[in-house]
Nucleic acid binder design. Structure first.
Lengths: 134, 134
DNA sequence: GCTTGACCTAGAGTCGGCTCTAGTTCCTAC
DNA sequence: GTAGGAACTAGAGCCGACTCTAGGTCAAGC
C-alpha cells in the first residue's frame, strides 16, 4: 500500500476479509464494476473504490445474494448510466428476498423455541425420558 | 396409504415436500431416529411419527441447520433416554445461531435499504447517471 | 546475484446437499 | 399374464462458491 490509494491484493485481503483466491475468482467471474489495473509486472492494483465495492458485495453475499445476481447487478453498472431503474428493481427484489428470509427464520425460531421450552421443562421435571419415546 | 397409519414413500413425499431421492438419502445418512420398516417386497413403510419428524427437520433445515448437526441430534435421540440435557444444549445452540443469523440479515437489510433509498431519490431526481460513475 | 515472500496462471479438487441414471422388481388392474 | 406405475439399489453427476495445486515470476533487502 502507498499513499496514492493504490492497493495490492494483500491489502485488499486485509481490508475485506476475502481471500486472494476469492479475489482472483471474482475478477475472472466479472464481478468488479471496473477492470482491475496491473503493474508492469502483472500484479493487480486495486483502489479504495474497489474495496468499497467489495465491502458492499460482502453485505449482499451475507444476505444470501447469489453470485449470479451480483453479476447481473455488476453488468448493469458496467453498461454505464441509463439503467438505474433496472438496478433499483434488482435491489428492491433482493430487499424483499431478505425480508422474506427473515420472516421464515422468525417462523422457524418460534418452533425451535417451543422445542427448547419443552425440553427445558421436561429436563427440569426429570421426565425427559418420555421425549421421543412415545 | 391405508387406515393403519402406514405410509408409502409417495405419501411421505406428498406430506413433507421432500423428494423420494431425498428421503432415501436421509435414510442412508442415518437421519431418522428410528429404522424405517419394509414390506415383504422391500418397500419402505413410514409412520405418522416419521412424517412429524421430517416436518420438524424441514424447519431445522430451513433455519440453516446443516445435516451434520441434524445427525448429531438424531444420534442423541437414537441413543435413548438419558441425554436430554445434551439435546437441549444442541437445540439452544441452534436457537442462538438462528438469532445471530436474523441479526446479521437485519444489519444487511439496513444497508440494502439505504442503497435502495439512494437509487430511488436519484432516479426520481433524474441524476442517476452519477451513481457509480464518480 | 541470491534469498524470501508476495504474487501470477490455468485448471483441478472440495464440500454440502441433493438429484439423477440405469437397470430391476413389485403390485394393482385389466 | 401383461401393462403401467411406483418403488428398489448402487453409484455417478451436479451446482454454487470457493479453495488449492503446480509451477512459475516479481521485487526488495542483504
Amino acid at each position: 500500500m502507498d499513499e496514492s490509494g493504490e492497493l495490492s491484493i494483500g491489502d485488499v485481503v486485509a481490508a475485506t476479509g476475502l481471500g486472494v483466491h476469492a479475489l482472483r475468482f471474482f475478477e475472472r467471474e466479472g464481478l468488479f464494476p471496473r477492470e482491475i489495473a496491473r503493474t508492469a509486472g502483472g500484479r493487480r492494483v486495486y483502489t479504495r473504490a474497489d474495496v468499497e465495492w467489495l465491502l458492499l458485495c460482502n453485505r449482499f453475499r451475507a444476505s444470501g445474494m447469489p453470485l449470479a445476481t451480483l453479476r447481473a447487478f455488476v453488468d448493469l453498472v458496467r453498461a454505464g448510466p441509463g439503467n438505474e431503474p433496472e438496478r433499483l428493481a434488482l435491489l428492491r427484489e433482493h430487499e424483499s428476498a431478505v425480508r422474506a428470509r427473515i420472516a421464515e427464520l422468525d417462523a422457524c425460531l418460534e418452533i425451535i423455541q417451543h422445542k427448547v421450552a419443552t425440553y427445558e421443562s421436561h429436563v427440569q421435571a426429570g421426565t425427559a425420558a418420555s421425549l421421543w419415546n412415545p
